[in-house]
């Protein structure tokens, strides 16, 4: 079965990186995966998104009719992607930027996360998308926590070893918040 998630927000929020972390974790868990960015003349502060499709069989279509989950980090992303989530799906809303705004749908699970504050708890308030990934994994369990940890060490460690701990901290904070959100 294929599951899809879109990570969307501003360029610079780490969305493409976070999607790749999920993709590498999926490979480590023996799954098939496809990562596709929105590409184009985009820049820091502009919009950025990527889609990750995870499955047990080789991934078919690189475009999906509906997403199983959406991580929306800013207002344009909320407006664009929340309506594209399948009924019964999950919308993770970055309440640090969006305040009380939500997707206004009763047929999906909406998880509101103060990503900036949670990322700060982990050690670096910029790692907002990694927080959201933690909540996503806690809620949906597509990949194992260990594989995300390993992917974060591999990817963050390669370029900026000094931020690995903060990445792991942000992921753990998101994981915990997601688990609480699920129980509630």
């Amino acid at each position: 079965m294929e599951r899809s998630v879109v990570f969307a927000g501003f360029g610079g929020q780490g969305l493409l990186f976070t999607g790749q972390v999920l993709a590498r974790a999926a490979i480590r868990d023996g799954l098939e995966v496809f990562w596709i960015p929105s590409y184009g003349p985009e820049m820091r502060g502009g919009t950025a998104s990527c889609t990750v499709i995870v499955g047990d069989e080789p991934i078919g279509s690189p475009v999906v009719d509906e997403f199983d989950a959406a991580v929306v980090m800013n207002l344009p992303s909320l407006r664009k992607f929340a309506p594209l989530v399948a009924p019964g799906g999950l919308v993770i809303v970055n309440s640090s930027l969006l305040g009380d705004l939500g997707c206004g749908r009763s047929d999906v699970d909406e998880m509101r996360l103060p990503c900036t504050e949670l990322a700060a708890q982990g050690g670096d308030d910029k790692l907002v998308s990694v927080v959201a990934l933690g909540a996503l994994v806690a809620h949906l369990g597509w990949v194992t926590r260990e594989s995300i940890d390993s992917a974060l060490r591999e990817m963050a460690g390669r370029k900026r070893p000094e931020v690995v701990d903060a990445d792991l901290g942000a992921f753990a904070a998101g994981l915990q918040a997601g688990a609480v959100g699920q129980a509630a």
């Binding site: 790749q20 490979i27 995966v33 496809f34 596709i36 960015p37 590409y39 991934i59 690189p62």
Partner: peptide, 10 residues
């Protein structure tokens, strides 16, 4: 095409 060029796969 642009998708195969830009996408990542295992």
């Amino acid at each position: 095409d642009g998708i195969l060029g830009q996408a990542m796969e295992p």
